[in-house]
Design a binder for these strands. Structure first.
Length: 298
DNA sequence: CGATTTTGACCGGCGC
DNA sequence: GCGCCGGTCAAAATCG
């Protein structure tokens, strides 16, 4: 992904928090000061508009790339489905459902138990052969010791381990939103920045997000969808590469493109609206525009 | 009292 | 074959 194309809308830290109050000019202030102020506001307003335009363009480019990527992934799925599974012996009970559909969103009259069998079977094969793995960074309070990431889905924790490469414990979650959904995620604090939670998602949800509100109102601040890039450092307002990095996208269930787009838009919007610099600049720009209109009407 | 979390035990892969 | 390590299981503890 082209980093440079993204960097343009990353930095919203322009000092655009102009003194709006300054516009409440006292009556005895000179006209030239007013004109200067107006010019400045207009210039900044223009700059903001350009930033917004650029951001929209970048978003469109990203969306296009995502679409292409998803399409490519789907093609790969069809190819990979012919490849033989690797080792790892299956449990005995798997034989009972060996004729079941593996891969693909198997639809059917299968019972919940069958779903679980399939789920486990699929899961095992996916971990070896094909798996969609994405990594997401979340900003949290450094003092927050919980490994909870509010991403809109419901998760059930089934384990916690301290790994060798990172002293902070890694928590293991399974999707609890739907019984037949076997998406897993691992959450661990970043080695480099303890205030950043690294969530690694495996698999794809085969159901809609139960609560999209939660994903925006969560305690954790979303930083990026990204691959192996380092988590954003320093300013918490940084927005890293908004790309879902996947190792091999060949898991059976197809990605729901509208959902992904929606999620992407929500996450971008959430990141922007939570950025104090951006909101301040936006407020200043809107106020400036209103003020400008008032002046022209007079 | 059911649902959820915690945590030690267990399992399988992998490198030596 | 052995030990290490990551991942999962499941009984116990905790919570609402």
């Amino acid at each position: 992904m082209d980093q440079s194309s993204l960097s343009s809308f990353v930095d919203t830290s322009l000092d655009l928090t102009i003194g709006v109050t300054r516009m409440r000019v006292e009556e005895d202030s000179t006209t030239s000061a007013l004109v200067d102020e107006l010019n400045r506001v207009s210039a900044e307003n223009k700059k903001l508009s350009e930033m917004l335009t650029l951001m929209c363009e970048n978003y469109n480019v990203l969306r296009k790339q995502l679409m292409e990527y998803v399409n490519k992934s789907n093609n790969m799925t069809e190819i990979d489905q012919t490849s033989p599974p690797k080792k790892r012996k299956s449990p005995a009970r798997d034989d009972a459902v060996s004729s079941a559909v593996i891969g693909g969103v198997s639809e059917s009259s299968s019972t919940d138990q069958d779903d679980l069998f399939l789920c486990k079977k699929k899961q095992r094969e996916e971990t070896v052969v094909k798996e969609k793995v994405s990594r997401v960074y979340y900003k949290t309070e450094a003092s927050d010791t919980t490994l909870v990431v509010k991403d809109g889905y419901q998760w059930r924790k089934y384990g916690q381990k301290v790994t060798r490469d990172n002293p902070s414990p890694r928590a293991y979650f399974k999707c609890a939103s739907a019984p037949s959904c076997c998406v897993k995620k691992k959450v661990q604090r970043s080695l480099e920045d303890q205030s950043v939670l690294v969530a690694t998602y495996e698999g794809e949800h085969n159901h809609p997000m139960p609560s999209q509100i939660d994903s925006n109102n969560g305690l954790n601040r979303y930083i990026s969808l990204g691959g192996h890039t380092a988590p954003a450092k320093g300013s918490s307002s940084s927005l890293a590469e908004p790309v879902t990095e996947s190792k091999k996208v060949t898991s059976p269930s197809r990605m729901d493109i509208p959902d992904v787009q929606k999620l992407l838009v929500e996450q971008m919007a959430s990141s922007l609206t939570k950025d104090p610099n951006f909101t301040a600049a936006l407020a200043a720009a809107v106020t400036g525009r209103l003020y400008q209109q008032n002046q022209t009407e007079k």
